[in-house]
Nucleic acid binder design. Sequence first.
DNA 1: AGGCTCCTTCCGTCAGGCGGAAGGGGAGCC
DNA 2: GGCTCCCCTTCCGCCTGACGGAAGGAGCCT
Lengths: 262, 262
Amino acid sequence: MATADQGRRGGPAAPDPRSAADRLLDVLGAFDQDNQALTLTAVARRAGLRLTTAHRLVGTLTRWGALERDQAGVYRIGLRLWETAALAPRGVVLRQAAMPYLEDLYEATHENVHLAVRDGTDVVYIERISGRSAVGVRSQVGARWPLHATGVGLALLAHAEADLQEQVLGAPLAAFTPYTVTDPARLRRLLAEARRTGYAVSDRQITDDAVSVAAAVFGAGGALVAAVSVVVHAEDAHPRQLGPAVRVAARGISRALGWQPR
Amino acid sequence: MATADQGRRGGPAAPDPRSAADRLLDVLGAFDQDNQALTLTAVARRAGLRLTTAHRLVGTLTRWGALERDQAGVYRIGLRLWETAALAPRGVVLRQAAMPYLEDLYEATHENVHLAVRDGTDVVYIERISGRSAVGVRSQVGARWPLHATGVGLALLAHAEADLQEQVLGAPLAAFTPYTVTDPARLRRLLAEARRTGYAVSDRQITDDAVSVAAAVFGAGGALVAAVSVVVHAEDAHPRQLGPAVRVAARGISRALGWQPR
DNA sequence: AGGCTCCTTCCGTCAGGCGGAAGGGGAGCC
DNA sequence: GGCTCCCCTTCCGCCTGACGGAAGGAGCCT
């Protein structure tokens, strides 16, 4: 979607309000989960740039290593960018600290295990351990979902500041299945429940055959940092049983991050 | 190091030959393993930019999400960049495919397990599984080392095209310990040995207490893609024993990537 | 061959990036 | 308190280098 405002009338071409830096970032932004490999023309179209401009920017990015070009002339995200992005404190660094505990959780359940952080009113998945026999889930590493629908999102929202909660509760809540909670009052009760029990449950809110049980992870000083979850088939979901296991893993990670129980 | 050429003489300021795009990328490049958190001034210094220019660029990057700024005003790599970089085919995508086999290798050995790819004449580490009791290694995810010294580097070099081998063999070989192989003829023999046995051994070439045993990973069509290694204490190193295990893991990953034994 | 799409190079114009200057704000020191 | 130092932010005029139209090349399909 959003090929918008390409329409130019008689006027002498509306001057692009974007800075050169914005345009470069828009080239990077042209790549996403569904567009991991793009031709030059596709980059130009998705970034809303003239072909020549895209050509120049893509050349610069490729020379630096932010993009790579294969024999067919198709561009992908390059290793050098990956390398730099590996320094993100909420990415690789968090993941490395959490990994052993995620492994333990996987060993104990043999189900999909997730680690995610909050960005605005979305969750971003940092890591996923996929059981071979586990339920098919729609979340990939790097994927984004709204806070209110996923297990990890509910866990994060339940422990978030009041104004963020109000922001989410005040906006329309997108539905992904018939089970997705779109009623603010019901969402409020879910969050209260999550705070009371220490784990959040998302029942078939993303796909209609998966239930997710999640718990929040805190850093040094008690700041909310991330959330962990286990995703299981809806029919054999035992939140009461999984909750404690997820909580244990979450506390383990919190401890590794320097969190101290009060 | 490298505060170089800040010296301006009487002249009216040498015009920076870098493009706006280059300068933006140099801001990102200012962040590395040893500089994961930088103030605005530090960014300007490391990127070789005026403070005002850095200020503007860093603002744009932060607005986009490529950088994040904490309360103290210190900048770090942001989640959005991490998200985009997660699309790198030789990064997260490769890692996800390899992970189960790396786990198996870790279970079998309980030593540090590495996955790395080649970039130019360097290796870049994509993943590391650290045993709690394993030997301390100097490689982090996202780290870079020259091909000739690490186990994974030797495995990659042994199966690389002839001209790359000649390029490495023709250049000076940096030493990191007294054991680092800096003689081209000896390196040539190591590579031949690696091809013969199917695994490469780096004996105390990076740190003087660690031995690395590595094997190459191939993709669909037989293209060289990556290398896997196990790093153990020098005293209890049994390359003959580890070699086969590493080879099995490497072939497993290769198979997962669509490689077919001929 | 012809027509198509996608890519690359060239070059003149003018908008927008650059950086000097000035001022705010906080930490540390006397 | 008053001082200094350092880091950050905003403002604004000049000049440069980014932009994009135009033209042409390279494949690919019919």
